[in-house]
Design a protein around this nucleic acid. Structure first.
Lengths: 224, 224, 224, 224
DNA sequence: CATGAATGAGCATTCATTCAT
DNA sequence: TATGAATGAATGCTCATTCAT
């Protein structure tokens, strides 16, 4: 069971529209496009999606208004590009599958840790994504689809544990997966993305969420 | 333990600004103000907060632009008024305390049911509130404060159960409360507020969430 | 020669329109009207003519919007009423003619002093009048006519002195009168109406202006 | 002694804000900005500052609303720009120092003439400036500062003449300068800027004002 | 590729004035 | 007389988008 397809992460389908434009032909074009995306991310994280003006982005990227439209159709599209780039970056850092050691609790703990670490590293962007999904139906659908895939995967994991007698058989795997997955992503959002009340004790966060998952599924006692 | 101070509900402090304007002196004024609030709620629920134009609201209320400003300063203020009225309405319908029968599971089930029913009855508004809290810092702070009060209450309930040997003593009450409370409100949001995939099996929803809570806290087995 | 018809003072013709409405029939009406005028003057002096809202005035007068229109057609009209009342008040305090002692210098000094004292007592209103005359053509014409009457009177005084060999015969009486009259009213405005640089030495002001007048007309030396 | 820093002329400090926006990058931009300023001046002179709508200005300049905001923040700023351009124009036409021939009367006459000629050439604008200074505190301060500089210069001239035994030693140089300077600017305003009673005899105006100055200061007789 | 000037629809807001009670 | 709710025309300003250079 893994959590690395977190709720709200941009599905390829959203990133694609941005990729439809064939990539810039020249080296210079590639650089300009990249600088626009970097600028957009900076601006979005600074002032939020709604308050970001295209002019802010081009100013940050030190290019003219017209140039923006050479690479993107509008704010929505460049936001999708920002997400695509971020997703790319997130994939690399050993986001590989957590080794399945046979100990469900250990697997759960590892995947929760992996998810929360990724979340923490991209907290600003996560908050942003949350905001945009609430605003733009396209991103909402997107996030929904992606989250669903994630929930489905976890639901299958739960069903498997139930079959093996390792999880409470009375729980509806799909709904339980949804509930617990949302719990994790929501707590991540509230403790890691919103800067309020200083940074939490990260290990404690991972431990508690993992224990709640384990308890909720009625894992056989793993203590003592 | 109860859930009736759901995440995101408007704290009095937000409603107040709207109330600061002294209420209309005449009967007619009271009617007009009420019709504006009703119109605003309808428009907000129809097109969302961001896309709602003041002109839409006054058109819906069949009054002129100027009249709007007689009662509200701007969209934010009338939204606060909408929330205040809704809150008022929500308080009445037997939102009274769930009788504490001594059976923690029954109490939990009852309070979850009460919360989810209220949520369902005001699903559109809840979605709206979620959207606005993501947009307007004032409402975000508001929701945060209110949610925190709710989480605190539940945290105390958890600590109490732990003391009585009825809940897993290894859980951090505060963080656990936060996680499980968010789980409920988030699942409520996703299944009841967003119209996707038809209406869920409501009882099943209540049962599953309650069981997850109970399991997570390691309630003594209440079955059989 | 006297200066008591100062530049910019409202000619009766302007005050009249306000008087055209026959005065309130009841005692209560008279009081209401008076309170509106007092309120208007206070508001005008506080925020200026342009920034004064009718709502400010009715609020200050503690009456409703509708009541205003019972007594005045608009802001212009109530301003005229304010001027009329002020003029009334100014007339009383011994604004009587300066006794002509035969000594032109003494007469000049006395009339300058009288003018400047009146100005000082009503400095705020004077600044106001200046502002309004610059804005509203009706008041501009008004002020012009009044100032002209004043200038004419002084011009006749100058011509008379010339005839008696007491003033520089080469000066154009009309233009000289205009220049010196404006000088006085302008210095009064800048030193008494605009609160800048603290209150001036009033006697010094009177003396200097009088001496300039006397010198300009080449009065026979009155010193030693 | 010269008068070429007339009361109300815009100090650089006011013109600056308008100049802060970096000048247009292209030739075309420069032309558009200039046409807006010209249009603004025309509209201001036609209908006055208060009644000028930004729409009037853009219509006159044959450009869109948006274009206006490309170059100016609001009406106040474009008015400052109008003044700055006008000031620029005024500086050129031989506004050079009046040659000091050693004859104070001649110097006085020449500087009065220069001042009044400039005033006459820009009469409409002068009236405008007067109106705006009465309305907008920023311009009022501006005018005050500029006028004070002018008054100070003349005060020094007067003190100098007194020292040389050429002017009435009993006069307060500062106050006398203020009074006589205001006299000139005020007469200029009333005879040259306000279109009333046809154009005056310009030479006569210069002569009379100069003679009043000379008399007031008790210049040694220059006649005969 | 890059520029930046030009566009103009779109919206919030103010406030003098009217009028039914 | 007094009230105060209702009106709506008028206007400033923003900002995504286009296009000539």
């Amino acid at each position: 069971m893994d959590l690395d397809g977190w709720e709200g992460s941009p599905p390829p389908s959203l990133a694609n529209p941005a990729l439809l434009r064939e990539p810039p032909a020249t080296e210079r074009g590639v650089r300009t496009r990249a600088s626009l995306i970097a600028a957009a991310r900076a601006v979005f994280e600074r002032v939020g999606y709604l308050d970001a003006r295209l002019a802010d982005i081009t100013a940050e990227a030190k290019c003219s208004t017209g140039t923006f439209y050479l690479y993107f159709k509008n704010k929505e599209e460049i936001f999708a590009a920002v997400l695509a780039v971020a997703e790319e970056e997130m994939r690399h850092p050993g986001m590989g599958r957590v080794a399945d050691t046979g100990d469900p609790y250990a697997v759960l703990a590892a995947s929760n840790r992996a998810y929360l670490e990724t979340y923490r590293r991209n907290a600003k962007l996560m908050a942003l994504l949350d905001q945009v999904a609430n605003i733009d139906p396209a991103f909402q659908r997107l996030r929904r689809r992606r989250a669903q895939a994630f929930i489905d995967r976890n639901a299958r994991g739960i069903a498997d544990l139930q079959k093996r007698g390792l999880a409470d058989p009375d729980l509806d795997p799909e709904l339980t997966s949804r509930a617990l997955s949302m719990m994790v992503s929501r707590v991540a959002f509230s403790t890691l993305a919103l800067d309020e009340g200083g940074p939490p004790d990260f290990d404690h966060l991972v431990d508690t969420l993992t224990r709640i998952w384990a308890n909720a599924l009625r894992f056989p006692d793993h203590r003592g």
